[in-house]
Each structure stands twice: as C-alpha cells, then as structure tokens.
C-alpha cells in the first residue's frame, strides 16, 4: 500500500511538471506580458524598465526554473489586472466553487444511485421507462440550456428561487460559506441542480447496468435462497459491488465539477473559480489563467489518488502491492 501511494505521488509530480512546462510556454509565448504590465502608452524605454524589473530579460531556462521555484513556494506571480497574488485571487473563490460542486455531487450521487437501483429492480415498469427516458435528456441537453430553462421556470415564472448569485454568506476563518444561511441554500439549489444534471444521468445508467448484471450472479441467487431480506440482498450484497465503478466516476467527475464549472458559474453569476477564469481569459490576465490550470491539474490528480484508495475500502479484495 505504501509503495503504491509513493508511486502514485511520483507519477503525479511528473504530470504536474509537464503541466507547468506547458503553462510556462503559454505564459511566455501568448502575447508579451510587458505590454500588459507597462500599459498601452508606455514608451520603449519604460517597457525595458518593466522587462528588467520582472526578470523577463533573462534566458528562458532560467525564467522557467525561477517560475518553478516560485510555484513550489506557492508564488505564481501577481494578477496583471488587480496586482494581487494570483493564487490568493483564485483561492478566495475556491469555497464557492467547492460548495457548489459538493452539493451537485451529493445530489447526482444520491439521486443517480437511488434511481439506478429502482430502475434495475423493475426494468420494464412504466416508472423505470420514464426515468430512463428522462436520463437521456440529462445526458443530451447542454448545461447552459438546462440552467437557463431552470431559471425561466423557477425564477421568472414561478418566482420562488433566486436566479443568480450566492446569497448571504458567513465567514468562517478563511472559508466563506453559503451553506449556513437559508438564503445561501436557496441560491445554491438551481446552479447545483444544473451542474449535477449530466453526472446524475451518467451515474444512473452506470448503476442500472451494474445492478442488472450483478442481480443475475450466482451469489445473489444464493442470498435470495438463504431467505435474506430484499433490502439486505439488494443494498448489501449487490449494490456494494456495483458501487466501485460508480464511485470512480463520481470521484473523477467531482474534480471536473470543481475545475470546469465555468458554464454553470457564468449563467448563475456564481462567484467561483470558473467565473474568475472566464473573466481572466477575457482580460488576458495570464498569471491567473496559468495558476488556475496548475490548480485544476493538482485537484484532478489528487482526487484520482483518493479514488484509488477508496477502492480498497469498498472492496477489501483489491490489493495494491
């Protein structure tokens, strides 16, 4: 187990290095940062001053290693626009995105697995057919459309849920949370529902397929024959085995929900990292964009490793040595 973890960590570091190289390349070759830093009306002389001050006159390799050194210490440079530390700018937005992704994944996991089990038990009932047809919508309708439809229904016509923003928040240390206020919950429902739509449908279909396969296995027949209660057979004997691929997908998609919630955050004006990324791209604020990519890579790697470790918990037969 320990060797496995070490090996995975080493692999992760290599991936991060590769990402940093790509980022650095993006950083330096997509537009001259000096033009951004010095302003539109800077003279040649002023530009040279800025170039020196930021160390942009040094050879490329030297710059890369100093960037790497800075990144190791958590210093990714300052936003061109606000002159604030790029990592701080992003981390300030992290709680909003994390909470949104968390509520979304809870929603899609509980609904997806729950409905998946229901559908698997009576595959041909009218309820199952309705649910399966509905899941097709979840997979095929793009996020922005789901979001706008939900807003039209709940905010414009019914006027029961707010269409944008995060509502009232509470500051707990460095973490600004919206999950402790009623208005925060009202505000999170629509975006979380939007964000969870696709995952919900995928998890539902995955659970259904797995359940149908497992329910035909010999050991399940044995369990029925022993006279165990349906709950025990379905939930303990069957579902537990089915959950392995489901948890994998859910875990991986959690990373994606955090890293790529851009569309949902934009529609709902959610003050998270995705929204910031989009704004930064429009403003060509390179340090923020690069830091975001590095952070996204890190989160996805981290979650990958955690998911692998969770396997062992769910199924003791899996060994990593």
């Amino acid at each position: 187990m320990a060797t496995y973890i070490v090996r995975r960590l080493l692999q992760g570091i290599v991936v991060l290095l590769a990402v940093s190289l790509v980022c650095f390349w993006l950083f330096r070759y997509t537009g001259d940062p000096v033009r951004m830093l010095a302003g539109k009306y800077a003279t040649q002389e002023e530009q040279e001053q800025v170039r020196k001050a930021y160390g942009l006159d040094r050879p490329m390799a030297v710059q890369y290693f100093s960037f790497l050194g800075g990144a190791l210490k958590g210093d990714f440079g300052k936003s061109y626009i606000s002159q604030i530390d790029a990592l701080d700018t992003i981390l300030e937005r992290f709680p909003a995105t994390f909470e949104l992704a968390l509520v979304a994944i809870c929603f899609s996991f509980s609904m997806g697995v729950g409905l998946g089990v229901v559908v698997a038990i009576r595959p041909n009932g009218w309820l199952s057919r309705t649910i399966m047809a509905g899941s097709l919508f979840g997979i095929s309708i793009p996020t922005f459309l789901i979001g706008i439809l939900l807003v039209m229904l709940f905010s414009v016509y019914l006027n029961i849920l707010p269409p944008f923003g995060r509502g009232d928040t509470v500051q707990l240390g460095f973490w600004r949370t919206g999950l402790l206020t009623a208005s925060g919950w009202q505000h999170i429902l629509l975006p979380a529902l939007t964000l969870s739509g696709y995952q919900l449908a995928v998890l539902l279909r995955l659970t259904r397929a797995g359940m149908r396969e497992t329910l035909g296995e010999e050991y399940i027949k044995t369990a029925w024959a022993k006279g165990l209660s349906p709950a025990k057979v379905i939930l303990k004997h069957a579902l537990r085995n089915v959950l392995i691929p489901v948890v994998t997908i859910a875990g991986l998609s959690f990373g994606e929900l955090i890293a790529y919630s851009i569309v949902t955050e934009t529609i709902f004006q959610w003050p998270g990292m995705g929204n910031l990324l989009l704004t930064s791209i429009f403003e060509t604020d390179q340090p923020v964009i690069v830091t975001y990519i590095m952070l996204a890579a890190f989160i996805i790697l981290f979650i990958n490793i955690v998911v692998d470790l969770l396997y062992a918990l769910l199924n003791p037969r899996i060994r990593y040595d």
Binding site: V151, M152, S155, V156, N159, P162, P163, F164, I267, F268
Partner: peptide, 11 residues
C-alpha cells in the same frame, strides 16, 4: 439572460 432573470425575479 441572468440580468433579465434578476429583473424578472425582482432581485
């Protein structure tokens, strides 16, 4: 679209 919804919902 969000600005419109904010107006419609009297936010």
């Amino acid at each position: 679209a969000t600005r419109f919804a904010a107006l419609a919902g009297k936010q």
